[in-house]
């Protein structure tokens, strides 16, 4: 009977076609290029920068060459030092923000976020300028007769460190602040009331409860710091070769694109690992 005939097709919501241009864009300029990077990483550099598609894992084995392994380890070291420095300096800032009055909180928040929006080439340059032979620090030092010759700060480990830390510290402060802002500070009083020392109440109460923010912050700093090349390039000179510079050089100077592709995939793997840690870390909090 007609009365029980079912509807053959539900009305199609034509709004789904609105996503088509964006989808095509992402396919054409995000996914396909990534796929080509994978293909290139399996090719070999031929004469004069040409590429031979012979599909070997040679580029990946080359990463384990001691020269590159050293560069990789140095990058890891810089990323680790940057993350820990950002944590040590950023935690007090986040703590001060979380315990401040709403008005001060807004001001401090703006102070954390604003440099994050300024161009990082400019920020790196500003440090270079500050530490240059006749920059503010040297002029001041010599004016006060603390030292008589310009100290050669630029192209030093210190200027790289300063550049990295000031570059990435907002990524540490913001997640820490989010965790601390939700933290009920009366719990610290409760811990003290139950006889915990301030050391114990810090490590046994505060740290476990802001763990999410801590891990998120560390990942947000570590991951991009690993592939950084502009800051070391501008502030460290050519002396400190890092994985970021190495990749860039393969594309801009040596023209060994296959090897550069393999190295950049290594970077993507690092990002994916961090992302997994971040997501599982976030999920475990949701379950609580």
């Amino acid at each position: 009977m007609e009365a029980v005939a079912s509807r053959p097709i539900a009305r199609l919501d034509r709004r789904i076609f609105l996503a088509l241009p964006a989808l095509i864009w992402f396919l054409g300029f995000l996914l396909i290029p990534l796929f080509i990077v994978v293909i290139y990483s399996l090719a070999t550099r031929g004469e004069y920068g040409a590429v031979t598609f012979n599909f070997s894992l040679g580029n990946y084995f080359r990463i384990f060459d001691s020269v590159y392994l050293k560069i990789f380890l140095r990058s890891l070291q810089l990323a680790a030092v940057t993350s820990i420095s950002c944590l040590l300096l950023g935690f007090p800032v986040a703590y001060v923000m979380a315990t401040a009055s709403p008005r001060w909180r807004q001001i401090l928040m703006a102070m954390v976020v604003i440099p994050f929006w300024t161009n990082f080439v400019i920020r790196a340059y500003a440090i270079k300028f500050l530490l240059s032979d006749y920059g503010l620090i040297n002029s001041l030092g010599m004016f006060l007769h603390l030292w008589s010759e310009p100290i050669y700060f630029s192209n030093s480990a210190f200027s790289v460190w300063l550049g990295m830390v000031t570059n990435y510290i907002p990524f540490m402060i913001l997640p820490l602040y989010v965790s601390l802002e939700k933290f009920d500070f009366t719990m610290l009083e409760a811990a003290r009331d139950l006889g915990a020392s301030s050391w114990n109440s810090f490590w046994k109460v505060l740290v476990p409860l802001i763990k999410t923010g801590l891990i998120t912050g560390l990942i947000f700093v570590f991951t991009p710091a690993l592939g950084e090349f502009v800051v070391p390039d501008l502030l460290g000179g050519a002396k400190t070769m890092l994985i970021g510079n190495l990749i860039t050089e393969q594309f801009m100077k040596t023209r060994d694109w296959p090897f550069g592709s393999a190295l950049s995939l290594l970077l993507i793997v690092a990002v994916l690992v961090s992302l997994t840690i971040y997501l599982t870390n976030r999920d475990s909090r949701v379950q609580h």
């Binding site: 290029p33 991009p224 592939g227 860039t248 694109w257 970077l267």
Partner: peptide, 13 residues
């Protein structure tokens, strides 16, 4: 995605 990777993948493409 690391910006470096996005940049170089587009360069190759």
């Amino acid at each position: 995605m690391p910006e470096t990777v996005m940049g170089l993948s587009l360069l190759i493409w």
